[in-house]
Simulated scan of single mutants.
Amino acid sequence: MSSEVERSETSERASGADAGDYGTLYVVGIGPGLPGGMTQRAKDVVRTADCVVASNLYQEFLRRDGTLPPEDADERPEQEVVRSTMGRQVELAREAFERVRDGEDVAHVSGGDPNVYGKSDLVYLMAEEDEAYDVPIEIVPGVTAALGGAANLGAPLSNDFCTVSLSEKWRGWAEIEEKLRAAAISGFVVVLYNCWRDYERAVGVLREERADDVPAAIVNDAGRGDAGRNVEGETHTVTTLGEVADHDEKVGGMGTSIFVGNHETEVWTNDHRDHLVTPRGGRDVEDF
């Protein structure tokens, strides 16, 4: 990262405008699915931003309850909605910096939470690349898929847990495998993201260090109802680590998370359905 002196000099050169005339670049986590799962802060930022950058899918979600107006509506004509795609992230970040310098508030939408495999790191990388130290940046948190999926399942994350992405775009498989093995040995409940890649391989590594009969679950499109990528809509399947791969048809792709319990995780059943529960450990009712 640049030195404080370099940053100061860059900020002075960046624009003749008074910093008080700047807008703010918000990286907004909208939760795992539909607008009902958003924080009020996220909803307010998206509704009032001068420019909203969001993929087609997220635009559709945000229009469901009026967080964004209908595509053909005259409501909020002063608000511009820009389509985000994977191939335009760098270009859109640079455009956002200029909009903020021109006094606009920009909401850059990220699914889940921006800090959990989301878009916050890109914004900071681009700010460093372009020496955009003058641009105000605020991260607006959201509910990540691990938490949204856990809510569907009951209480699987009530003790220590970790998330591991199976995407090899920035990390090689050797590093992913090392993390999986360490997590399994350490007793963490593990939540796998990006299960469209090598999930069976990942499950195989976990099975080498953890018993096949520990509870596990496959969650699709948590919080999205019938609006997600999975043709069956929002689903969760309770199984065991040893049998996860037997439910291959339930692993739907980008919207899928796989939860793998530890030796304390149990399947708890009431009159309605099965739940996964990982106790906090060493406590009973009297301890409360």
Results as ranks from 00 to 15, higher is better:
100 V>I: 10
144 T>F: 15
12 E>N: 03
90 V>C: 09
143 V>S: 05
83 R>Q: 03
175 E>M: 11
83 R>S: 03
86 M>A: 10
24 T>C: 14
255 G>I: 15
154 G>K: 11
54 A>I: 05
250 K>G: 07
167 S>A: 08
276 L>N: 09
242 G>Q: 13
13 R>I: 06
255 G>M: 15
59 Q>D: 06
141 P>H: 02
254 M>A: 14
197 R>S: 04
288 F>W: 06
64 R>E: 09
214 V>P: 03
61 F>I: 03
171 R>L: 14
157 L>S: 12
246 D>M: 14
56 N>K: 09
233 G>H: 04
22 Y>P: 01
229 R>F: 04
227 A>L: 12
257 S>G: 13
226 D>L: 10
273 R>T: 05
151 A>I: 11
64 R>T: 00
266 E>W: 11
268 W>S: 10
61 F>T: 00
125 L>S: 06
88 R>E: 13
39 T>V: 13
183 A>M: 12
211 A>D: 13
135 V>S: 10
239 T>Y: 10
109 V>G: 09
274 D>M: 14
96 A>D: 05
177 E>L: 11
109 V>D: 09
46 V>M: 06
4 E>W: 00
105 D>Y: 05
104 E>Q: 15
100 V>H: 02
58 Y>M: 12
54 A>G: 04
120 S>K: 06
156 P>C: 13
68 L>S: 02
12 E>D: 08
185 I>R: 05
230 N>D: 15
140 V>P: 12
166 L>N: 07
166 L>M: 13
122 L>C: 05
43 K>E: 15
34 L>G: 00
181 R>F: 03
77 P>L: 14
197 R>D: 08
35 P>C: 07
115 N>W: 01
200 E>D: 11
180 L>C: 02
162 C>N: 11
263 H>L: 14
150 A>P: 08
210 R>N: 00
246 D>W: 10
120 S>V: 14
66 G>T: 02
152 N>R: 10
31 G>H: 02
145 A>W: 07
272 H>L: 15
